[in-house]
Amino acid sequence: MNRRPSLPGAAELFRLTAAAPVPADSPVSPVSSVASAEDAPQQRRGSGRTKHTTKITVYVSDEELLALEQARLTLRAAHGLGVDRGRVVREAIAIVLDDLESHGDESLLVRRLRER
């Protein structure tokens, strides 16, 4: 039995977690970037690596769990993204909710739920 704790790798410990601040001498003023951000619809994002205060339990089939784990491994191997299953699920939820909000009745979620 292995009693060594599993610790995160250096890539996870030292990765960037926030957008880089705009330097004061930058040609892009903070006011112009705010105005352009207001013009574009806000896109939902998964919460990433933060302390989460709420938990839900979701039951999945063996095939769904295997597909989720394969997606996580593909993200690591092919794209260099070391993420856990929870992060993948939170991003997927954010994508589906954005699609529902912007497309309503024509959203992928509504169409797929109506199929069943």
Rank of each mutant, 00 (worst) to 15 (best):
P5E: 01
V22F: 01
V34F: 04
P41K: 14
S33D: 01
S47P: 03
L81E: 05
R112F: 07
R44L: 14
S26W: 07
R76A: 14
P21G: 09
A24V: 08
P5G: 10
H52M: 10
V110L: 07
R112A: 06
L100Y: 13
A19W: 01
A71F: 15
V31Q: 15
L75M: 14
S36H: 03
R90I: 00
N2I: 03
A92R: 09
L100W: 08
V83A: 12
R112I: 02
E12G: 00
T74K: 15
G82Y: 10
S6W: 07
V60P: 05
Y59I: 08
D39E: 11
F14S: 09
G9N: 12
S32L: 11
R87G: 07
I93E: 02
I56K: 10
L7Y: 05
T74Y: 12
I95P: 00
L66F: 14
Q70D: 07
G82R: 13
E69R: 15
I56N: 08
E38Y: 11
V60Y: 02
A24M: 06
R76H: 10
V89K: 08
P5A: 13
G80K: 01
V96G: 01
S107G: 05
G46F: 09
L75W: 04
A94N: 07
L109T: 10
R15D: 00
G104L: 02
V88E: 08
S36A: 08
L73M: 14
T57S: 08
V58Q: 01
L7D: 00
R45I: 09
T17E: 04
A78P: 00
L108A: 09
L65G: 06
H103Y: 03
G104I: 01
V110S: 12
L100S: 08
G82N: 14
R90E: 15
L7H: 04
T50D: 05
V22L: 13
T57N: 07
S47M: 06
L108I: 05
Q43F: 12
E91L: 03
P8V: 03
S107E: 02
P41M: 04
R76G: 01
G80E: 05
V96C: 12
S47R: 10
D98C: 01
V110R: 14
A19Y: 05
E106P: 01
A92I: 07
S107H: 13
R114F: 04
L68F: 15
R85L: 15
I56M: 08
A37C: 06
R49Y: 12
T17I: 02
T50Q: 07
Q43N: 11
G48Q: 07
E106Y: 00
A71H: 15
R85P: 00
D99T: 02
R44V: 04
A18E: 02
S61I: 03
A37W: 00
R87T: 14
S33F: 05
S102E: 13
D98F: 00
A18T: 03
E91I: 02
A18R: 10
V110C: 06
R3C: 03
V34D: 09
G48T: 09
L16I: 03
R45T: 12
D25R: 13
V83W: 14
R116S: 09
